[in-house]
Simulated assay, not measured.
Amino acid sequence: MPNLKVKPNGTNGRVTHVTPENAGWTYVGFDLHRLKPGETAAGETGDREVCLVWVSGKGKAKAGTKDFGTLGERMSPFEGSPHALYIPMESTWSVTAETDLELAVCSAPGGGTYEAKAIPPGTHPALARGKGTNVRYVNNIMPEDDSSAHSLLVVEVITPGGHTSSYPPHKHDQDDLPNESFLEETYYHRLNPPQGFGFQRVYTDDRSLDEVMVLEDGDVTLVPKGYHPCAACHGYDLYYLNVMAGPKRIWKFHNAREHEWLLKA
């Protein structure tokens, strides 16, 4: 199995590149571009669909023959909700940075007759989940009740310092609907302040997979299967951008039985 933690490669251009081939799985792809003003990232979707997420900064976007103008307004992923842009299969896209820009490219197998569309902040309501030191703040970008995509599920979460997230531990690695869905998942992590660190554990019931990773600013973690809780250390808020995809566009998870009592505490 490939290393489950992917470090950024450099500080400019495409610094992260996760594909089904190099991840050793089937569905999810994730790229991260860091651009200076005037620089451009571009691509062709082929047989995949794409969701571009303006993690921070502003940039002019085109998809196919459509000009979407300038998207993005926050200068940090810890400041408000994101702009995003969905692009269907068999299309092209380009984004030219107007400020320093951090652009995520989330991808999965395409299908259907979907159209390119902008996803501005406020398209889906911001949510708070959990209680006590398990509270975290959720911005849905492409949730399952948004029927404008074939495979992609995209969401970002901010976990305050000292809190846990993706917790109690849950998994979605069985194609067993209506009980559980199979979804591969990537986490793109940022820390505020950036010198901080957090932790993520990815493990299965039989512990055939059991890996604990230190999370630093800019790391990507892969979740091919198993439970995958995160913890943010005191004083450092943890942001992550999730991309999920599988054979069906449904997020149905299974909680670790030994920790389910926490939901009733």
Rank of each mutant, 00 (worst) to 15 (best):
P169L: 05
D175Y: 15
A149R: 00
N9E: 13
P8F: 10
S56G: 08
K66D: 15
T204L: 15
T11K: 11
D210I: 11
V105N: 04
L222R: 03
P178L: 07
G111D: 06
L127Q: 11
T65C: 08
N242V: 12
L183H: 06
N139F: 09
S208I: 15
D237C: 01
Y227H: 02
R34L: 15
T16G: 12
S107I: 08
T113A: 12
G161I: 15
T70M: 08
L32T: 06
T40Y: 06
M1C: 09
D176V: 11
C230E: 14
T123P: 02
G69F: 09
A128T: 06
E90W: 12
A118D: 05
K66S: 12
T65I: 11
V154L: 04
V223F: 05
P178D: 06
Y27H: 03
T70D: 06
P194G: 11
H228R: 15
L85E: 08
S94E: 10
L52P: 00
V18R: 04
R249Q: 05
V28T: 09
M89R: 15
Y167K: 10
K264N: 09
A256Q: 03
E44Y: 05
S165N: 11
D175E: 14
K225I: 00
P20T: 10
L152T: 01
K252M: 13
L152G: 03
T186L: 14
G162M: 13
V95C: 07
L127I: 07
V53D: 01
R48I: 12
H254C: 08
G226Q: 06
S151H: 04
E144W: 04
G235H: 07
V55M: 14
K171G: 04
F68Q: 07
L238E: 00
T96M: 09
D175Q: 13
G29E: 10
T40P: 00
V202A: 05
G196N: 09
G24R: 07
K58T: 08
E90V: 06
R136I: 00
W93A: 12
E39L: 05
K171T: 04
W261N: 08
H254I: 02
T19M: 11
K62N: 04
S208C: 07
V53N: 03
A232E: 01
N242R: 10
K62H: 10
Y188Q: 13
Y188C: 12
E144S: 12
V220L: 03
A265M: 10
V202C: 03
V55G: 02
L191F: 10
N179E: 02
R136Q: 00
A108D: 13
D175G: 09
G57A: 11
T99G: 01
F30V: 03
E216Q: 04
P169W: 06
T92M: 10
D67W: 02
V214F: 09
E216I: 08
A97P: 01
T123K: 08
K60G: 02
G43I: 11
A61S: 05
K7T: 13
D100P: 01
L127S: 15
P20K: 14
G162P: 07
L209K: 01
L183T: 07
H124C: 12
G112W: 15
A42H: 08
T221V: 10
A149Y: 01
P193E: 04
S166V: 14
A118G: 02
L183C: 01
A63Y: 05
P143C: 09
H150I: 06
G29L: 15
P82T: 08
L209W: 01
P37V: 03
L241K: 01
D31T: 02
V6F: 11
W93P: 00
V157P: 03
R207C: 11
